[in-house]
Nucleic acid binder design. Structure first.
Lengths: 249, 249
DNA sequence: TTTGGCTATTTAGTCAGACAAATAGCGATC
DNA sequence: GATCGCTATTTGTCTGACTAAATAGCCAAA
């Protein structure tokens, strides 16, 4: 019925998970996905039929269909015979799906959307920090510490520093031991990444983010849920403020 | 570039969105999806190759491939030439995707998973209720009221009553005006639905859920965020308690 | 004139079979 | 022993044909 992984040979596999666009169906899905989330196609619009569309895009009908299946799986479109493939209402879109988020950020997302993402962070992350303070194990604590040290030495100006920032927030989510909650990490990671982009756009890092990060860490390390919640609240709140200031330019 | 909807003829379209399994690719995706989330296939396992799999399932290779694209879009599997299609690590799964959630509930979900979902509700819904109290418009308020009246007259023993319950929670999310937050409604709706199933399994409705619902509504209607947050906290907390008691059987 | 059902048409859905591209793993060579 | 290149296997892509479903519009009947 199934084959088991032979050895520890799955290391290579996770490597380039973002190579999802390297195949034709993936890149077509991305093209159409970006067109949809950017508003180029509106909900209710009907795409050209498969024959015409695949010809216009210079790909086979099967490749185009696989792309449509991807979009349908993420709730962006809906197909049926005779009627065709139609862009669904926005409230059906899987906005927190990593790929959909990436498509949003490909064409600059609206301020409203960003605001929504931050509001979500403000709701989820403090609560997650509190849970993490209760449940984290030593390994997770160690990974948080390493991430912060890396972040400190590399600064947010480097790709490695930004990755460390995301790692820290990821690990906090993971330490809640709540799998559904953890799936929000990609969404939150997207918001985190965007914060940095905005800050750097202004060519200034308004404040040193490290002290606030360490406060969160210390509270989680000391197993103090309330303190962790408050520290995280402050951290996310400041990030929101900085981003808002940058947008206001 | 695009065709517009001719008339107001999109009403029919949203009707049976759950007919996603009526086509072969959808039903194959469901079959495999259930097998994966239920643990029949483990992360790291490699599926049989496309030729063999499609023959075993008595479908064409293209239909099978479209099913795999759906699963890949939801993060359950990953394909690459030569290596094959492999079940991804659990932390990559889109656990909050409506279909993935449905697949989980198809084979009874683990207690841990349910607990995670409730914890998420406990985090998100009170905050959402507070935001809704600030931002709801009259139309949303009216829909909440209608939902509760329907719920009251039909009781949770009927399908219509349960739908009304979900409508209420949905509308609260919607009234936050936060699109990313609103996408969590399907996940929360799943948890709501499950609560009712558990309650009815015990053949008893432990307590009348209406007073607590009305308290949430009143607070939102009166634009009192803190009061709404507390009322929702209590509502979800009691639901969790009831569900937990039913599981403990 | 309205209604109701039938049919023609359009579209996605499914199938079969071929070839292309990528790559993991093996084997030859240095 | 290390490195390089080959090869077998798997997914990826393409083509073209046929099937099935859904709809719009026609036509007949009331």
């Amino acid at each position: 019925m199934r084959k088991k992984t032979d050895k520890a040979g799955d290391g290579d596999f996770a490597r380039d998970s973002l190579a999802a666009t390297s195949r034709i169906h993936g890149s077509i899905a991305r093209t159409l996905g970006v067109a949809i989330v950017s508003g180029q196609y509106q909900p209710g619009d009907i795409l050209n039929n498969e024959i015409d569309s695949s010809e216009q895009l210079q790909v086979s009908r099967s490749a185009y269909r696989e792309a449509i299946r991807i979009l349908a799986a993420k709730g962006l479109v809906e197909s049926r015979p005779k009627t065709g493939t139609r862009v669904t209402e926005r409230n059906r879109w899987s906005l927190l799906d990593p790929e959909v988020l990436a498509w949003f950020f490909e064409s600059e997302p609206s301020e409203e959307f960003l605001k929504g993402l931050y509001e979500l962070r403000m709701i989820v992350e403090p609560a997650a920090a509190a849970l993490a303070a209760e449940r984290r194990d030593d390994g997770q604590l160690e990974r948080m510490r390493k991430a912060l040290i890396q972040m400190e030495s590399q600064t947010l100006a480097t790709e490695a520093g930004q990755a460390a920032d995301r790692d820290f927030h990821d690990t906090v989510l993971e330490a809640t031991g709540n799998a559904p909650l953890f799936t929000l990490s990609s969404s939150i990671g997207a918001a985190v990444r965007w914060t940095t982009i905005f800050k750097q756009r202004k060519r200034e890092l308004p404040r040193d983010p490290m002290p606030d990060h360490w406060k969160v860490f210390d509270a989680i390390a000391a197993s103090r849920p309330d303190q962790a919640r408050q520290a995280m609240e402050r951290l996310v709140g400041l990030a929101l403020e900085d981003t808002r200031a940058s947008i206001a330019d």
